[in-house]
């Protein structure tokens, strides 16, 4: 993206976490939109077979987290891990057979989510340690004071299409436009942690539940209309938030594939360009991750 930033002044820190186990309670089942009980895998562990560019609702799951789901055991350390880690940060596996292999952060979902090549990911499991080069929080676009940037590494920003245009707005390429009716769980929470679940994304439900968003892909750049995520997440007419789809299907009603927020500002600060190829899957090559 052609844009002037303060990237040279940002701090890079090494933060570590571990692949967290999938968790359940004694009941196991949850209910879908129609009250139907379901039991499906989802959060935690290492989720294979889903990567940036894949249809987010392709797999039968609930809150599918692509790749590695990473946390830290100590609460304060974990919050720092979740808050400081940004999309596009490089992740290196520190233990187990894939030690030394690398991937990249695709978002947060109360876990840091890490995509890496399938063959390397297949050798990672619960408890394996990872280190992350955390950089990005504090990033500003020097010619766009009214756009708040968050959870965005300077490398990803550089790789995104667009930039400051001749009228002073920010050209941003997005694969999909998200209407405010789609905003589900995550509303009202801080926007440096977890993500925003999208409704209207349920391929198995009737058309009354649809907002035409069943074909979102992991890694898609999306524009959320009438959303202000500058200081949390909320409805605000005339504002736009830009996000990266970081989680897959959810059967729990009011939940769904979710974007992690990277930008937020008044609508006229952006020139949104629909571009179905706008996806962060280019990061593996850009970052030259070691596989």
């Amino acid at each position: 993206m052609k844009v002037t930033t303060n990237a040279s002044r940002l701090v890079t820190q090494i933060v570590v976490g571990e692949v967290w186990p999938p968790l359940s309670d004694r009941n196991g089942f949850r209910v879908d939109a129609n009250g139907q009980a379901f039991f499906l895998p989802g959060m935690g562990g290492v989720t294979l077979g889903v990567h940036c560019g894949d249809i987010a609702t392709r797999l039968l799951g609930d809150h599918v987290e692509p790749g590695l789901s990473v946390r830290s055991a100590k609460e304060s350390v974990n919050y720092a891990l979740q808050f400081l880690t940004c999309i596009g940060n490089i992740v290196t596996v520190m233990s187990g057979p894939s030690a030394g292999k690398q991937g990249f952060v695709i978002g947060q979902h109360a876990y840091v989510l890490v995509d890496m090549p399938e063959e390397d990911m297949a050798q990672v499991t619960t408890g394996d340690q990872v280190s992350i080069r955390a950089v990005g929080q504090g990033l500003r676009l020097l010619d766009h004071d009214n756009i708040h940037i968050k959870n965005l590494s300077p490398e990803l920003l550089e790789g995104l299409a667009g930039g400051t245009n001749s009228s002073g707005a920010l050209d941003i390429h997005v694969a999909r436009i998200i209407p405010p009716e789609a905003i589900g769980a995550g509303s009202g929470m801080v926007s440096e942690y977890a993500n925003t679940d999208l409704m209207g994304t349920y391929p198995d439900l009737d058309s009354s539940f649809s907002l035409g968003l069943e074909d979102l892909r992991i890694g898609d750049v999306v524009a959320m209309i009438d959303q202000d995520h500058s200081f949390g997440r909320g409805y605000r007419e005339g504002w736009i938030s830009i996000g990266i789809i970081s989680t897959g299907s959810a059967s729990l009603f009011g939940h769904g594939p979710g974007p992690s927020t990277i930008m937020s500002g008044p609508a006229d600060a952006f020139n949104v360009i629909l571009d179905e190829n706008s996806n962060i899957k280019f990061l593996a090559d850009l970052l030259k991750v070691k596989s």
Binding site: D32, A33, S208, F209, F253, H255
Partner: peptide, 15 residues
Amino acid sequence: TNLDARFNAGYRNGW
């Protein structure tokens, strides 16, 4: 309008 809240609350056209 357009909210189905029988179980979890979520978007549903016509509810």
